[in-house]
Each structure stands twice: as C-alpha cells, then as structure tokens.
Amino acid sequence: MKGFAFGQYYPANSVLHRMDPRAKVICAVAYIVASFLCKNTFSFVLLFVSAFALILISRIPLKVVLRSVRALIFIMAFTAVLNIFWIVDTAEGAVPLVEFWIIKIYTKGLYHAAFILVRILAMVIGTGLFLTYTTTPIALTDALESLLRPLAKIKVPVHAFAMMMTIALRFIPTIMEETEKIMSAQKARGADFTTGSLAKRAKALIPIIIPLFASAFRRADELATAMECRCYHGGEGRTKLRILRYHARDFLGMLWIILFIAAIVTLNILGARFGWLYTM
C-alpha cells in the first residue's frame, strides 16, 4: 500500500510544473484528442516520440512515470491480445501470418495491437504529465473550477464540486494511512485476512471497515466544524489567495499542442494519399 503512486505530484523544476493549471488541463484534453486522431504508422510514431519528449521536458524520472503505466498493464495486454486475434485483413491478397484451427493472425492485427498500445501509453503518460505529476491537486481543482465557471450560469454548483474534489483528494493519503493502522491493530488482536474461504475473508474485513467508516465520519464532522468556524459559506463572494494568470509559456504550450495536432492530421492525410504502411 506504501507504493500507491498513481497520480501523485512529483515536485521538480520544469516548464510543465510552472505552466498555468488551466492551460495544462486544456493541453491534456487536446493531447487525448490528438492520440485519437492518429491513423497510420507515422502519426503513431510521432505520438510515441512526443510522449517521451514530454517526460524529458517535465524532468520527472522515467521510472516514476512508468510506475503509473504499470497499473494499466493488464488492460493494455488485454486490448493488444484482443486486437491481434480479432483483426481480419480484408484487403485483396492478404495472407494470414499464422493460421491454426479457427485462429488467424494477420500482420495488420499486429500493427493494430501496437497502435492501441501506443495510444494507451501516450494517453496515460500525457495526462499524467500534464495533470497529476506536475500539478498539485489543489491547483488542479482550482483550474477545473475556473474552467467550469461558465456552467454556474445554468445553476451547476461548480464551487461545491471543486471543494468536494479538493477534500476527497486531500484525504486519500490520510485514509490509506488509517487503514494500515487499523489493520495492524486488528492483526495484533489475532485477525487473519489472508487465509480461509472467501466468505471468511470477507467477514474478516468487518473489523477494518467499521472503524474506518467511523473515523471517516468523525473526520468529516470535525472538518465541517472547522470550516464553519472559519466562516466558510460556499463559493459566493469568496476571493482567492492565488489568482491564476496566463503567461507566455502557457500560450506557447497550447500553440505547441495545436501544431502537434496539425502535424498528426497532415501525416494522416499524406498517409492516406500515398498508401503508407498500415492505417487504422
């Protein structure tokens, strides 16, 4: 449980860290769109290279970034395998690479599997680098609140959502720590979570879940009191300590993403015209 690292802020001194969180949210969304626009080998190669370029720019160790990828290995492997077996090349003269019983594997299938892998990898790395790794959770919710503000006109409680998200993020590590403590305490009383039938193991979790809920409610209660003591009354008329401002680097970042999308679209069109390699 100590190794829980998905979406944790990693402090470093880089342009990505200094960018305005709103610009980063926009870039992250654009990056996902870009990864879906990729159509042929060349654009996927560009996408792949860009993901690693982002890691270099962010100055976050490769090992740290790959840790969040590791959590998705199962999904990646599953989709890759599915593609390898599912894709049937309907082009004329296409011969299966391997033919065995009802299984037919085409070269196209292998390419598709590779494409999907690159796409998932790029999405995870891209969003991670733009958002969770380089942006503190507080800055992120600030950005979301600011970007979603127009929705407040149609009575969407944007501030309340942002506050809920901030609090939820803030308490994840606290509750993890608490879980570990309660587990130790119950183990000291002879609780056993690892042996026995499934029903027995599920029952063994009760001594953890109940104290955990009790303490979550107690914390919520205390937090509410503490917020009221400091006159919290929702978003109305609330000012900010740190006001978000766009700088040149933010516009440059967004410009970079636009150019990136343009490059991918160009590669797609050229690929379609000249029949380059495999396309999706």
Binding site: E178, S184, A185, R189, G190, A191, P207, I210, P211, A214
Partner: peptide, 25 residues
C-alpha cells in the same frame, strides 16, 4: 500490542463483544 489511540479500532456492537474479539480469534 495496544497501538496508539486504540479507541479507533473498536467495531463491535457491544463493549463485551469487542473485548471478546481477541479471545474469540
């Protein structure tokens, strides 16, 4: 071992049942 702030590990419906949790295990 009685850990720090052990009161947060109580979970049973009655005090009796909670004290009996260890011996029952």
């Amino acid at each position: 071992l009685v850990m720090q702030y052990p009161e947060y590990q109580l979970f049973e419906e009655t005090v009796y049942a909670d004290i009996a949790y260890g011996p029952r295990n």
